[in-house]
Design a protein around this nucleic acid. Sequence first.
DNA 1: CTGAAAGCGCTTACAG
DNA 2: CTGAAAGCGCTTACAG
Lengths: 362, 362
Amino acid sequence: MRQRGARERATIADVAREAGVSKTTVSIVLNGLAANGRVRAETRTRIQTAAEQLGYTPSHAAQVLRSRRTMVLALLVQSLANPLLVDLAVAARAAAERRGYEVDVVDARTEEAEVAALRKLHAGRADGVIVATGRHFARGAAVRELRALVERGLPAVVLIDRSPDPAVPAIRADIDGGSYAAVRHLLDLGHRRIALLVLGAPGHGASSADLEAEPSSLADRFRAYRRALSEGGVTYDPRWLIRGPFGLVGGREMVAPLLAVDPRPTAAFVYSDPAAIGVIRGLDEAGLRVPEDIAVVGFGGTEVAAFTRPSLTTVAVPAAEMADIGIGTFFALLEGEVELPADRLVETRLIVRESCGAQRGC
Amino acid sequence: MRQRGARERATIADVAREAGVSKTTVSIVLNGLAANGRVRAETRTRIQTAAEQLGYTPSHAAQVLRSRRTMVLALLVQSLANPLLVDLAVAARAAAERRGYEVDVVDARTEEAEVAALRKLHAGRADGVIVATGRHFARGAAVRELRALVERGLPAVVLIDRSPDPAVPAIRADIDGGSYAAVRHLLDLGHRRIALLVLGAPGHGASSADLEAEPSSLADRFRAYRRALSEGGVTYDPRWLIRGPFGLVGGREMVAPLLAVDPRPTAAFVYSDPAAIGVIRGLDEAGLRVPEDIAVVGFGGTEVAAFTRPSLTTVAVPAAEMADIGIGTFFALLEGEVELPADRLVETRLIVRESCGAQRGC
DNA sequence: CTGAAAGCGCTTACAG
DNA sequence: CTGAAAGCGCTTACAG
């Protein structure tokens, strides 16, 4: 029943026959290699007409097998529930498209999912990989798997973390600068008890030491926060470091431990916008007002931050710029560029809105 | 420089040589076709050891070219900025994975982008396509392009719209029931002037007639709304139909025309959650409170609706269920199932929260 | 229980 | 200006 009009797809041989030329000539013409008069104009149009008439589209698998180019780039993100990563993916796709490449976006929610996705790339499904999962800072499984790919010559670029390997260029946002500006802003507003909420195993105090040493982007927030506090003359209280689960739900769950700190912090700097939205909602449910009772600052700066009530003061990360540079770096790698750019840092900036209390509250 | 350890990838021939058998046997063993004792156990382990030692992964392109199966399914959505579509994509990926399939998620923001994405499928990049873009109700370019694919035997499933073609099964949410429940709920709360905000070219009144006849999912909202009003004894005022652009920004932009209606509507039923969030923000900026001054009901029911302030009363669409059924239908098509299920309707349900005013306001 | 051979649909030297 | 031939790395009848 499904057969219907399932006329077989035309192949290059069909086009060649129809146009009365060889497959070679068809291939040359259809790939635009006939510019310099390598094929007579008349022959060219004959081939193009035949191809069109037969509805010919080259088989992607055959092209890949023969040319060893997939024209596909894999992009791994942690979660499409985070609008910042969606922006990154959309921008990456647009940038790659300009050079004829597709971007396969994979959301690798867990490290196992990421490892599985990286493994699949051994099958030659993509000409390169960009990882933006935030898991490439340690000696974890994801890093090992990426390295295995790189050793086989697959171009790789890391996007959020620092480079885990000399052969892998990295582009990251200036998290240090943005975090410092955020905390500094809260200090300037008079806050003296400022909490830092980051993704991680719940509990606080004990984890400070680990985070201090970790080369991750979450740890960057922590170090900048500590620095801003100390420069602001505030003694850090380890109970101010709250760790909890991912996203909106995770943000809400961090409210209880936050409110358990006595005396209560008057401000919270949250590692992501979705988590900050969760925090604001959790505070609301606990009967506290933002920013009057507790000021909140997020991280990310995507569209949604301007639409919450109160609107979110946040550290804006230029996702499109990171994507553009990342894609550019991939192509440089692909073309065997010798002079690889060292790790690149893109600027972040603090967007002041209502949730920090600098403007009139909601 | 990029060459580094670029030792050539092992092929099936390498494994065969290493294990001292033919490529045939390697293929049979590695594809799990040797279960019934078709290959001696000892030979099997020898092959597996060799494959592992060489780090062998079959070339995807070669497998596809030879077997004519890509093990990939394309999923087209309108925008990853809509969390409902992200949920759909994530669920589809999970469901497909259970049967060894990958899902290529493409966000086709415009109809041109959708047409381009569908065109690419002629190259045999996927074994089927699921379209969830909301553009398959008319005689538009997207529908034509999809039909061309189906005529070549590519299994296709439509997810949000009605089926555009007898050979294409469709799964959609009960938008009619959900919309009716939403408007009915507002009527029960005493509202008599209820606006309907939907995506579309701005302007109102004139577009009522078009929308009434359109077989789209947006028109389903309109028809159910009209029915609920009339059953509730309310005479529809064409000025209550407000159309505007997409997403958060679009929602905010619809506030001005909404407030321009005199007497002002006391409630608004909005076509999506992101748009509803934009509306709430826009009303806030206009100095109006939700739900006290204007009640708002959204559509979608993803996680974020529970985290806004006020939390959003919304029509919940079971994205995961739709994805599961959609994937199941794709596999039925693939296996040439003759008894194709007619269009399926999945239940929606109204989730009552704060933005409609039924509960204590924020 | 195992292997030799054909062929999927292209591109790419190479020859003329 | 154009074509014959090889081969990318697999799977799949088919033969033994």
